[in-house]
Design a protein around this nucleic acid. Sequence first.
DNA 1: TCTAATTAAGTAACTGGTTACGCAAATGTA
DNA 2: TACATTTGCGTAACCAGTTACTTAATTAGA
Lengths: 164, 164
Amino acid sequence: MNDFLTEMEYVGLTSRLKRLSDSLLYSTKELYKSEGLDIEPNWNLIFILLQENEAMTITEISETLQFSHPAVVKIINKMKKNGHVETRTDTEDKRKQILTLTEKAYKQLPLFEKYWTAGRQTVMDLLEDSPNFLEEFLKIEEKVNQSDYMERTLKNLKNDELSN
Amino acid sequence: MNDFLTEMEYVGLTSRLKRLSDSLLYSTKELYKSEGLDIEPNWNLIFILLQENEAMTITEISETLQFSHPAVVKIINKMKKNGHVETRTDTEDKRKQILTLTEKAYKQLPLFEKYWTAGRQTVMDLLEDSPNFLEEFLKIEEKVNQSDYMERTLKNLKNDELSN
DNA sequence: TCTAATTAAGTAACTGGTTACGCAAATGTA
DNA sequence: TACATTTGCGTAACCAGTTACTTAATTAGA
Protein backbone atom coordinates (compact mmCIF):
# COMPACT_ATOMS: atom_id res chain seq x y z
CA MET A 1 0.00 0.00 0.00
CA ASN A 2 2.91 2.33 0.77
CA ASP A 3 0.87 4.91 2.65
CA PHE A 4 2.65 8.06 3.77
CA LEU A 5 0.55 8.45 6.89
CA THR A 6 1.35 4.89 7.91
CA GLU A 7 5.05 5.51 7.37
CA MET A 8 4.74 8.49 9.69
CA GLU A 9 3.80 6.07 12.49
CA TYR A 10 2.66 8.03 15.57
CA VAL A 11 2.44 11.32 13.67
CA GLY A 12 -0.05 10.03 11.12
CA LEU A 13 -2.43 8.23 13.44
CA THR A 14 -4.89 11.07 14.05
CA SER A 15 -5.41 11.64 10.35
CA ARG A 16 -5.73 7.94 9.72
CA LEU A 17 -8.45 7.69 12.35
CA LYS A 18 -10.36 10.45 10.59
CA ARG A 19 -9.75 8.93 7.19
CA LEU A 20 -11.10 5.56 8.24
CA SER A 21 -14.02 7.05 10.15
CA ASP A 22 -14.97 9.20 7.15
CA SER A 23 -14.58 6.30 4.77
CA LEU A 24 -17.00 4.17 6.82
CA LEU A 25 -19.41 7.07 7.16
CA TYR A 26 -19.59 7.94 3.47
CA SER A 27 -19.77 4.31 2.47
CA THR A 28 -22.70 3.77 4.83
CA LYS A 29 -24.53 6.80 3.43
CA GLU A 30 -23.95 5.54 -0.08
CA LEU A 31 -25.25 2.11 0.85
CA TYR A 32 -28.53 3.47 2.24
CA LYS A 33 -28.91 5.79 -0.74
CA SER A 34 -28.27 3.10 -3.32
CA GLU A 35 -30.76 0.80 -1.62
CA GLY A 36 -33.36 3.55 -1.41
CA LEU A 37 -33.48 3.44 2.39
CA ASP A 38 -34.69 6.65 3.99
CA ILE A 39 -32.25 6.52 6.92
CA GLU A 40 -28.79 7.83 7.76
CA PRO A 41 -25.72 6.41 9.52
CA ASN A 42 -26.06 6.73 13.35
CA TRP A 43 -29.87 6.46 13.30
CA ASN A 44 -29.62 2.81 14.30
CA LEU A 45 -28.24 3.95 17.66
CA ILE A 46 -31.28 6.15 18.28
CA PHE A 47 -33.62 3.37 17.16
CA ILE A 48 -31.97 0.96 19.58
CA LEU A 49 -32.09 3.42 22.46
CA LEU A 50 -35.73 4.36 21.92
CA GLN A 51 -36.74 0.74 21.56
CA GLU A 52 -35.02 -0.20 24.78
CA ASN A 53 -36.18 2.77 26.81
CA GLU A 54 -39.50 3.63 25.17
CA ALA A 55 -38.98 7.37 25.74
CA MET A 56 -35.93 9.54 26.27
CA THR A 57 -34.98 13.22 26.21
CA ILE A 58 -32.36 14.95 24.06
CA THR A 59 -30.04 15.27 27.04
CA GLU A 60 -30.37 11.64 28.03
CA ILE A 61 -29.48 10.53 24.51
CA SER A 62 -26.55 12.92 24.23
CA GLU A 63 -25.17 11.69 27.55
CA THR A 64 -25.65 8.05 26.60
CA LEU A 65 -23.92 8.44 23.24
CA GLN A 66 -21.39 10.98 24.53
CA PHE A 67 -22.30 13.30 21.68
CA SER A 68 -22.86 17.02 22.18
CA HIS A 69 -26.54 17.84 22.60
CA PRO A 70 -26.73 19.95 19.40
CA ALA A 71 -25.55 16.87 17.50
CA VAL A 72 -28.50 14.92 18.90
CA VAL A 73 -30.90 17.77 18.15
CA LYS A 74 -29.81 17.65 14.51
CA ILE A 75 -30.21 13.90 14.21
CA ILE A 76 -33.62 13.97 15.90
CA ASN A 77 -34.85 16.82 13.70
CA LYS A 78 -34.06 14.77 10.63
CA MET A 79 -35.72 11.70 12.09
CA LYS A 80 -38.81 13.76 12.91
CA LYS A 81 -38.88 15.13 9.38
CA ASN A 82 -38.76 11.56 8.08
CA GLY A 83 -41.55 10.54 10.43
CA HIS A 84 -39.50 8.07 12.46
CA VAL A 85 -39.53 9.99 15.74
CA GLU A 86 -42.12 12.16 17.42
CA THR A 87 -41.76 14.51 20.36
CA ARG A 88 -44.02 15.81 23.09
CA THR A 89 -43.23 18.24 25.87
CA ASP A 90 -42.93 16.65 29.29
CA THR A 91 -45.91 17.69 31.43
CA GLU A 92 -43.93 17.80 34.66
CA ASP A 93 -40.90 19.63 33.29
CA LYS A 94 -41.80 21.74 30.29
CA ARG A 95 -38.16 22.16 29.24
CA LYS A 96 -37.92 18.49 28.38
CA GLN A 97 -38.80 16.97 25.04
CA ILE A 98 -39.92 13.36 25.28
CA LEU A 99 -38.85 11.39 22.21
CA THR A 100 -40.56 8.23 21.00
CA LEU A 101 -40.47 6.11 17.86
CA THR A 102 -43.46 6.45 15.55
CA GLU A 103 -45.63 3.63 14.28
CA LYS A 104 -43.98 4.08 10.88
CA ALA A 105 -40.61 3.52 12.54
CA TYR A 106 -41.72 0.27 14.15
CA LYS A 107 -43.19 -0.90 10.86
CA GLN A 108 -39.95 -0.30 8.98
CA LEU A 109 -37.70 -1.67 11.71
CA PRO A 110 -37.53 -5.26 10.40
CA LEU A 111 -36.30 -3.99 7.03
CA PHE A 112 -33.74 -1.66 8.58
CA GLU A 113 -32.54 -4.41 10.88
CA LYS A 114 -31.55 -6.54 7.92
CA TYR A 115 -29.15 -3.80 6.86
CA TRP A 116 -27.88 -3.18 10.36
CA THR A 117 -27.21 -6.87 10.86
CA ALA A 118 -25.31 -7.04 7.59
CA GLY A 119 -23.35 -3.92 8.60
CA ARG A 120 -22.54 -5.45 11.97
CA GLN A 121 -21.28 -8.50 10.12
CA THR A 122 -19.07 -6.24 8.00
CA VAL A 123 -17.44 -4.75 11.09
CA MET A 124 -16.90 -8.26 12.44
CA ASP A 125 -15.25 -9.23 9.16
CA LEU A 126 -13.06 -6.13 9.22
CA LEU A 127 -11.94 -6.96 12.75
CA GLU A 128 -11.39 -10.63 12.04
CA ASP A 129 -7.61 -10.46 11.83
CA SER A 130 -7.35 -7.88 14.62
CA PRO A 131 -8.30 -9.83 17.72
CA ASN A 132 -6.98 -7.23 20.18
CA PHE A 133 -8.38 -4.22 18.42
CA LEU A 134 -11.56 -3.52 20.38
CA GLU A 135 -9.83 -4.05 23.69
CA GLU A 136 -6.87 -1.86 22.81
CA PHE A 137 -9.03 0.82 21.23
CA LEU A 138 -10.99 1.01 24.47
CA LYS A 139 -7.79 1.56 26.40
CA ILE A 140 -6.94 4.52 24.19
CA GLU A 141 -10.42 6.01 24.64
CA GLU A 142 -10.13 5.65 28.38
CA LYS A 143 -6.77 7.35 28.44
CA VAL A 144 -8.02 10.25 26.33
CA ASN A 145 -11.06 10.53 28.59
CA GLN A 146 -8.89 10.64 31.64
CA SER A 147 -6.55 13.30 30.25
CA ASP A 148 -6.99 14.68 26.75
CA TYR A 149 -4.54 15.27 23.95
CA MET A 150 -3.88 18.90 24.84
CA GLU A 151 -3.26 18.25 28.51
CA ARG A 152 -0.88 15.41 27.74
CA THR A 153 0.97 17.36 25.09
CA LEU A 154 1.43 20.41 27.32
CA LYS A 155 2.83 18.13 29.98
CA ASN A 156 5.22 16.54 27.50
CA LEU A 157 6.31 19.99 26.38
CA LYS A 158 7.11 21.03 29.91
CA ASN A 159 9.09 17.84 30.51
CA ASP A 160 11.05 18.40 27.31
CA GLU A 161 11.93 21.92 28.34
CA LEU A 162 13.06 20.83 31.80
CA SER A 163 15.35 18.17 30.39
CA ASN A 164 17.14 20.70 28.16
CA MET B 1 -16.81 4.10 32.06
CA ASN B 2 -19.99 2.23 31.10
CA ASP B 3 -20.18 3.57 27.58
CA PHE B 4 -23.20 2.63 25.52
CA LEU B 5 -21.29 2.59 22.24
CA THR B 6 -18.73 0.23 23.74
CA GLU B 7 -21.47 -2.04 24.99
CA MET B 8 -22.82 -2.16 21.44
CA GLU B 9 -19.54 -3.80 20.37
CA TYR B 10 -19.37 -4.04 16.56
CA VAL B 11 -22.35 -1.72 16.09
CA GLY B 12 -20.78 1.18 17.94
CA LEU B 13 -17.31 1.08 16.45
CA THR B 14 -17.85 3.52 13.57
CA SER B 15 -19.19 6.20 15.89
CA ARG B 16 -16.40 5.58 18.37
CA LEU B 17 -13.83 6.08 15.64
CA LYS B 18 -15.38 9.42 14.79
CA ARG B 19 -15.70 10.38 18.45
CA LEU B 20 -12.03 9.69 19.12
CA SER B 21 -10.87 11.30 15.89
CA ASP B 22 -12.91 14.45 16.64
CA SER B 23 -11.70 14.53 20.21
CA LEU B 24 -8.07 14.49 19.09
CA LEU B 25 -8.75 17.07 16.41
CA TYR B 26 -10.50 19.60 18.66
CA SER B 27 -7.98 19.10 21.41
CA THR B 28 -5.14 19.80 18.99
CA LYS B 29 -6.83 22.97 17.75
CA GLU B 30 -7.34 24.11 21.31
CA LEU B 31 -3.70 23.43 22.11
CA TYR B 32 -2.41 25.57 19.24
CA LYS B 33 -4.90 28.30 20.06
CA SER B 34 -4.07 28.40 23.75
CA GLU B 35 -0.37 28.55 22.95
CA GLY B 36 -0.89 31.30 20.41
CA LEU B 37 0.47 29.21 17.54
CA ASP B 38 -0.75 30.24 14.14
CA ILE B 39 -1.09 26.71 12.75
CA GLU B 40 -3.80 24.06 12.49
CA PRO B 41 -3.89 20.27 12.98
CA ASN B 42 -2.75 18.48 9.76
CA TRP B 43 -0.36 21.27 8.72
CA ASN B 44 2.56 19.31 10.10
CA LEU B 45 2.00 16.76 7.35
CA ILE B 46 2.27 19.41 4.65
CA PHE B 47 5.34 20.89 6.31
CA ILE B 48 7.00 17.48 6.38
CA LEU B 49 6.13 16.75 2.77
CA LEU B 50 7.32 20.11 1.46
CA GLN B 51 10.52 19.88 3.46
CA GLU B 52 11.29 16.44 2.09
CA ASN B 53 10.35 17.15 -1.49
CA GLU B 54 11.07 20.86 -1.81
CA ALA B 55 8.12 21.39 -4.18
CA MET B 56 4.89 19.51 -4.80
CA THR B 57 1.57 20.05 -6.55
CA ILE B 58 -1.92 19.86 -5.06
CA THR B 59 -2.55 16.54 -6.75
CA GLU B 60 0.72 15.03 -5.55
CA ILE B 61 -0.09 15.97 -1.97
CA SER B 62 -3.66 14.71 -2.16
CA GLU B 63 -2.43 11.38 -3.55
CA THR B 64 0.27 11.08 -0.92
CA LEU B 65 -2.08 11.80 1.97
CA GLN B 66 -5.02 10.00 0.37
CA PHE B 67 -7.19 13.06 0.91
CA SER B 68 -9.51 14.44 -1.76
CA HIS B 69 -7.91 17.26 -3.72
CA PRO B 70 -10.41 19.91 -2.55
CA ALA B 71 -9.37 19.08 1.02
CA VAL B 72 -5.77 19.86 0.11
CA VAL B 73 -6.79 23.05 -1.71
CA LYS B 74 -8.48 24.24 1.47
CA ILE B 75 -5.52 23.47 3.71
CA ILE B 76 -3.10 25.10 1.28
CA ASN B 77 -5.24 28.23 0.95
CA LYS B 78 -5.13 28.69 4.71
CA MET B 79 -1.39 28.10 4.79
CA LYS B 80 -0.93 30.64 2.00
CA LYS B 81 -3.05 33.14 3.89
CA ASN B 82 -0.83 32.62 6.92
CA GLY B 83 2.28 33.06 4.82
CA HIS B 84 3.64 29.56 5.33
CA VAL B 85 3.25 28.35 1.75
CA GLU B 86 3.63 30.07 -1.60
CA THR B 87 2.60 28.89 -5.03
CA ARG B 88 3.78 29.48 -8.54
CA THR B 89 2.40 28.12 -11.78
CA ASP B 90 4.53 25.43 -13.37
CA THR B 91 6.15 26.79 -16.53
CA GLU B 92 5.99 23.50 -18.40
CA ASP B 93 2.42 22.61 -17.42
CA LYS B 94 0.40 25.68 -16.62
CA ARG B 95 -2.34 23.68 -14.93
CA LYS B 96 -0.02 22.76 -12.11
CA GLN B 97 0.54 24.83 -9.01
CA ILE B 98 4.00 24.35 -7.51
CA LEU B 99 3.87 24.64 -3.72
CA THR B 100 6.85 25.56 -1.57
CA LEU B 101 7.41 26.59 2.03
CA THR B 102 8.12 30.26 2.63
CA GLU B 103 11.08 31.69 4.49
CA LYS B 104 8.71 32.52 7.35
CA ALA B 105 7.74 28.84 7.49
CA TYR B 106 11.35 27.70 7.72
CA LYS B 107 12.01 30.29 10.44
CA GLN B 108 9.12 29.10 12.56
CA LEU B 109 9.73 25.42 11.99
CA PRO B 110 11.94 24.85 15.06
CA LEU B 111 9.20 26.24 17.30
CA PHE B 112 6.46 24.20 15.64
CA GLU B 113 8.60 21.10 15.84
CA LYS B 114 8.70 21.31 19.61
CA TYR B 115 4.93 21.02 19.64
CA TRP B 116 4.84 18.28 17.04
CA THR B 117 7.42 16.27 18.96
CA ALA B 118 5.41 16.63 22.15
CA GLY B 119 2.27 15.60 20.26
CA ARG B 120 4.02 12.58 18.83
CA GLN B 121 5.03 11.66 22.38
CA THR B 122 1.37 11.95 23.40
CA VAL B 123 0.32 9.45 20.75
CA MET B 124 3.08 7.13 21.89
CA ASP B 125 1.81 7.41 25.46
CA LEU B 126 -1.75 6.75 24.36
CA LEU B 127 -0.64 3.62 22.51
CA GLU B 128 1.60 2.40 25.29
CA ASP B 129 -0.77 -0.28 26.58
CA SER B 130 -1.96 -1.19 23.09
CA PRO B 131 1.06 -2.89 21.54
CA ASN B 132 -0.86 -4.42 18.64
CA PHE B 133 -2.90 -1.38 17.82
CA LEU B 134 -0.99 0.14 14.91
CA GLU B 135 -0.51 -3.21 13.24
CA GLU B 136 -4.13 -4.23 13.64
CA PHE B 137 -5.43 -0.82 12.62
CA LEU B 138 -3.41 -1.11 9.41
CA LYS B 139 -5.03 -4.45 8.67
CA ILE B 140 -8.45 -2.86 8.94
CA GLU B 141 -7.46 0.00 6.64
CA GLU B 142 -6.12 -2.46 4.10
CA LYS B 143 -9.33 -4.46 4.17
CA VAL B 144 -11.49 -1.37 3.73
CA ASN B 145 -9.23 -0.24 0.88
CA GLN B 146 -9.57 -3.58 -0.79
CA SER B 147 -13.38 -3.69 -0.49
CA ASP B 148 -15.28 -0.92 1.23
CA TYR B 149 -18.04 -0.99 3.82
CA MET B 150 -20.86 -0.78 1.31
CA GLU B 151 -19.53 -3.53 -0.93
CA ARG B 152 -18.99 -5.86 2.03
CA THR B 153 -22.39 -5.11 3.53
CA LEU B 154 -24.24 -5.71 0.28
CA LYS B 155 -22.45 -9.03 -0.03
CA ASN B 156 -23.41 -9.96 3.53
CA LEU B 157 -27.01 -9.01 2.78
CA LYS B 158 -27.11 -11.26 -0.23
CA ASN B 159 -25.66 -14.15 1.74
CA ASP B 160 -28.22 -13.64 4.51
CA GLU B 161 -31.05 -13.73 1.99
CA LEU B 162 -29.76 -16.90 0.36
CA SER B 163 -29.53 -18.71 3.67
CA ASN B 164 -33.18 -17.97 4.49
C1' DT C 1 -3.50 18.73 -37.43
C1' DC C 2 -7.67 18.97 -35.50
C1' DT C 3 -10.57 17.08 -32.16
C1' DA C 4 -11.68 14.11 -28.28
C1' DA C 5 -10.28 12.52 -23.88
C1' DT C 6 -7.78 13.24 -19.81
C1' DT C 7 -5.81 15.81 -16.12
C1' DA C 8 -5.05 19.75 -12.59
C1' DA C 9 -7.12 22.52 -9.66
C1' DG C 10 -10.63 25.67 -8.14
C1' DT C 11 -15.62 26.31 -6.44
C1' DA C 12 -20.12 25.14 -4.58
C1' DA C 13 -23.04 22.68 -1.81
C1' DC C 14 -23.34 19.31 1.64
C1' DT C 15 -22.18 16.21 5.92
C1' DG C 16 -21.86 15.11 10.76
C1' DG C 17 -19.74 16.74 14.14
C1' DT C 18 -18.18 20.84 17.36
C1' DT C 19 -18.32 25.29 20.57
C1' DA C 20 -20.66 29.46 21.99
C1' DC C 21 -24.66 31.72 23.05
C1' DG C 22 -29.54 32.63 24.44
C1' DC C 23 -33.94 31.75 26.40
C1' DA C 24 -37.27 29.72 29.26
C1' DA C 25 -38.30 26.59 32.94
C1' DA C 26 -37.02 24.58 37.21
C1' DT C 27 -34.43 24.55 41.41
C1' DG C 28 -31.86 26.34 45.36
C1' DT C 29 -31.24 29.77 48.77
C1' DA C 30 -31.07 34.18 51.59
C1' DT D 1 -40.97 34.77 48.46
C1' DA D 2 -37.96 36.86 45.51
C1' DC D 3 -33.81 36.39 43.16
C1' DA D 4 -29.67 33.84 41.58
C1' DT D 5 -28.18 29.54 39.66
C1' DT D 6 -28.71 25.56 37.05
C1' DT D 7 -30.74 22.83 33.49
C1' DG D 8 -32.85 21.54 28.86
C1' DC D 9 -32.74 22.48 24.38
C1' DG D 10 -32.73 25.27 20.31
C1' DT D 11 -29.91 28.17 17.04
C1' DA D 12 -25.85 30.18 14.88
C1' DA D 13 -21.42 29.99 13.28
C1' DC D 14 -17.64 27.12 12.48
C1' DC D 15 -14.64 22.96 11.08
C1' DA D 16 -12.43 19.47 8.35
C1' DG D 17 -13.68 16.54 5.42
C1' DT D 18 -16.62 14.85 1.23
C1' DT D 19 -18.87 14.62 -3.79
C1' DA D 20 -20.17 16.93 -7.99
C1' DC D 21 -19.31 20.30 -11.26
C1' DT D 22 -16.50 23.68 -14.07
C1' DT D 23 -12.73 25.51 -16.55
C1' DA D 24 -8.43 25.50 -18.63
C1' DA D 25 -4.36 23.09 -20.15
C1' DT D 26 -2.30 19.03 -21.84
C1' DT D 27 -2.14 14.64 -24.23
C1' DA D 28 -3.71 11.06 -27.41
C1' DG D 29 -5.47 9.49 -31.65
C1' DA D 30 -7.82 9.37 -36.37
